[in-house]
């Protein structure tokens, strides 16, 4: 029986085991070593929330502190990847990704294509996503869909400690650039995780709960809300199938469509803003390829099209809740 560890520990363990396995794996980011080169306690911190803590003493020459210059160190990580390393760069909050979009969208994502398949860019960019941390509009966004939009990038968004470890190991071994999205409110979540190394393949959704009445597609933290809602709905004899996408690029279309064809009723839950989101993408997929099976319009449960509010009360209202998911599923289930 696997032991129980947190999502954050699972990520740390994946990094450690991959660094032990492959000397080309390096870790870099703001405070990832904990102030190397400065006097005082080394390894004091391990990234802003301590995810890389403990790696620096084990691998002192392979954990690098970087300046607060995202375009600089993300570019350095991408360059190192092209030159044969397997860097895992931590870009604290996904909200700061904007300053290095050229490095990510126009360089890392395009090298293989521009150089006739000869260049590989095995870089992983770990970043925190999601609202609910009382961190206001510039530290709370759910920008997964922006990366999903760009060909040449892969995007992982684990919902559980088991998936966090397996998907991160897969990301490090993958030869393409991967944006690895960690929901900051899941860091404390505990779950069974094998001590041994393992991978979870990209493009394979997880059917978290099997059901017959309504398909609920979600990813990241919303998976847990969907499962919670499904538990409540079961008391009302509405039997939900909950699908966790796990990776948004590539996305497991087959599992979504198979389920949609079975239930004929689909709700998509996305913590992101609604326009051009994963919710929109999945809804379009179902409308296009499972139209004949549908017995009700597809509903999306998303944040509204506004920045994440700083007010606690408003932020709670902003995030899709189990109650909102439940209401949407009931509408779809009862549609005739």
């Amino acid at each position: 029986m696997a032991r129980t560890i947190t999502y954050q520990q699972a990520i740390n363990e994946a990094l450690r085991q991959e660094m032990e396995r492959d000397p080309r794996v390096i870790v870099m980011g703001e405070d990832n070593a904990g102030g190397a080169g400065s006097p005082g306690e080394q390894d004091a911190w391990g990234g802003v929330l301590g995810v890389t803590k403990g790696l620096y003493p084990r691998f002192p020459d392979r954990v690098l502190d970087t300046p607060i210059s995202e375009s600089g160190f993300i570019g350095a990580a991408i360059g190192a990847a092209v030159a044969g390393m397997r860097p895992v760069a931590e870009l604290m909050f996904v909200d700061f990704m904007g300053v290095c979009f050229d490095q990510i969208f126009n360089q890392a994502a395009k090298f293989k294509y521009m150089f006739g398949g000869k260049a590989e860019t095995p870089v992983v960019i770990r970043t925190m996503i999601g609202a609910g941390f009382r961190a206001a509009a510039q530290h709370s966004q759910m920008l997964t869909s922006i990366f999903t939009h760009v060909p040449g990038l892969k995007v992982a968004c684990p919902a559980t400690p088991y998936d966090a470890k397996g998907l991160l190991i897969q990301s490090i071994r993958d030869n393409d650039p991967v944006i690895f999205c960690e929901h900051k409110l899941l860091y404390g979540l505990k779950g069974d995780v094998p001590e041994e190394s393992y991978t979870v393949p990209f493009g394979e959704a997880n059917v978290v709960r099997e059901g017959k009445s309504v398909t609920v597609v979600a990813y990241g933290r919303m998976v847990h809300f969907a499962v919670q809602a499904a538990g409540e709905l079961a008391k009302k004899k509405i039997d939900c199938e909950v699908i966790d996408l796990r990776t948004t690029s590539p996305m497991d279309e087959a599992t979504i469509l198979e389920s949609a064809e079975k239930t004929g009723r689909v709700v998509v839950v996305d913590e992101a803003n609604p326009r051009c989101s994963l919710a929109t993408d999945v809804a379009a997929l179902v409308a296009e390829k499972a139209f004949r099976s549908l017995k009700a319009p597809v509903e999306r449960v998303t944040a509204p099209h506004v920045p994440v509010p700083f007010s606690d009360a408003l932020e709670d209202l902003y995030i899709p809740s189990p109650a909102k998911i439940g209401a949407a599923v009931e509408r779809v289930a009862n549609y005739h």
Partner: peptide, 8 residues
């Protein structure tokens, strides 16, 4: 499946 995905 989880067993089969363990290293080795």
């Amino acid at each position: 499946l989880k067993y089969k995905r363990l290293e080795g």
